[in-house]
Design a protein around this nucleic acid. Sequence first.
DNA 1: ACAATTCGGTTGTATTTACAACAGAAAGGC
DNA 2: GCCTTTCTGTTGTAAATACAACCGAATTGT
Lengths: 221, 221
Amino acid sequence: MEKFVPILKKTKLFSGVGEDDIGKMLSCLDARLVTYKKGEYVIRQGERIADILILVEGSLHIQKDDYWGNRSILGQIGIGEIFGEAYAAPESGPVLNDVVAVEDSTVLFFDVNRVLSTCSSACRFHTMVVQNLFFAISEKNRGLVQKLQHMSRRTTREKLLSYLSEESKRQNSSSITIPFNRQQLADYLSVDRSAMSNELCKMRDEGLLVFEKNRFRLNQA
Amino acid sequence: MEKFVPILKKTKLFSGVGEDDIGKMLSCLDARLVTYKKGEYVIRQGERIADILILVEGSLHIQKDDYWGNRSILGQIGIGEIFGEAYAAPESGPVLNDVVAVEDSTVLFFDVNRVLSTCSSACRFHTMVVQNLFFAISEKNRGLVQKLQHMSRRTTREKLLSYLSEESKRQNSSSITIPFNRQQLADYLSVDRSAMSNELCKMRDEGLLVFEKNRFRLNQA
DNA sequence: ACAATTCGGTTGTATTTACAACAGAAAGGC
DNA sequence: GCCTTTCTGTTGTAAATACAACCGAATTGT
């Protein structure tokens, strides 16, 4: 387990904690290492978990099969990412997604109660880990709210305006650079790429904005 | 401030903590009471906050004005609800929404650092409050992910199937009762009510499901 | 320099949606 | 019982979207 300490040091959960202290905390947090072969399930929809998980090796997919058997990929989990934390609460109910290894993977399980209950003074940084956990889930939360705002708009144009004007506010400038290419932006907003491209050009022709690659400038109406 | 202790006792943050202990914790958590007249801003877009807020009197709206001045109401905050917690992290950046009092309101501010840093032994239930906070934001998170899954579907039919099949799994039955009427369901899924109603009837005619009011039964294909 | 790949824009069509307007059923108040 | 309001379903039309197919430009790898 100790060989993963350098990876853990880079995670959001252990941000600010030294490698020596991480090593000491592993037993305190009841850390368990589990390996999965490609294709195996880390979490199955319907399960109940009381752990916070960190991927330390490999790659995972969050996916969902609906009542009629259609599968959709909701996201990917990379090395160092925290997951499962939203279902660690006792009243959370069962997990609603499957988490599957897309290559041979290794996952570290932490008992959520051990994490949340500050223990003996041996863990100097326990309080910091609790804060880190809170901040990490807060960050997820903010991202979800943002995306929800854009996606709740009805038309492609409105979704674009919602996203671009928010980015403009966030970057505090009418000239912004976005972290997506066209396909990624379309996926992010859940619209068709070509339709979105079409709409962007219409908006440019109407003078709402100008763009070049992933740089945009918004114009006042 | 003490007159709000009975209200606080019912909140998710202080769940499981007695009134006497809540009273003692208020100073420990650096609680501050602020009143707002109808129309005043509790939080302005662009501000940075380092507090967790609880509404103890009145009613608030979360709203957003985009770059071109269009306003949209994102949600309502009722008495006892926690808010602001997602922006309490130091690296969270500025708040992206306005929070406005829609009637005369009273808000309790808690310093997030006091909440997250377990204090002296005087606060027996401090650990419990930290857990409650974590569970509360987890719950918000789960709701957001669920909604996002439904909204990311392209057609009204797919959104309905996504929502209904998830409810079916959650209620562990093919016969489910939903907490929405038609208009609320349409708002939840961000679609047009009449179009959704139309689509529901088509699905019924095709034998996918049957419904009466807010009760639905899904059929295997 | 060249080939292969990715990326972004354009177009046409079938599908789907939003919107408005309307009507019957159900629920609630008096 | 009667009126009013809310809820739900229906229809038609204009608008927007998804999808597929295509093309040229830019990028990448060799």
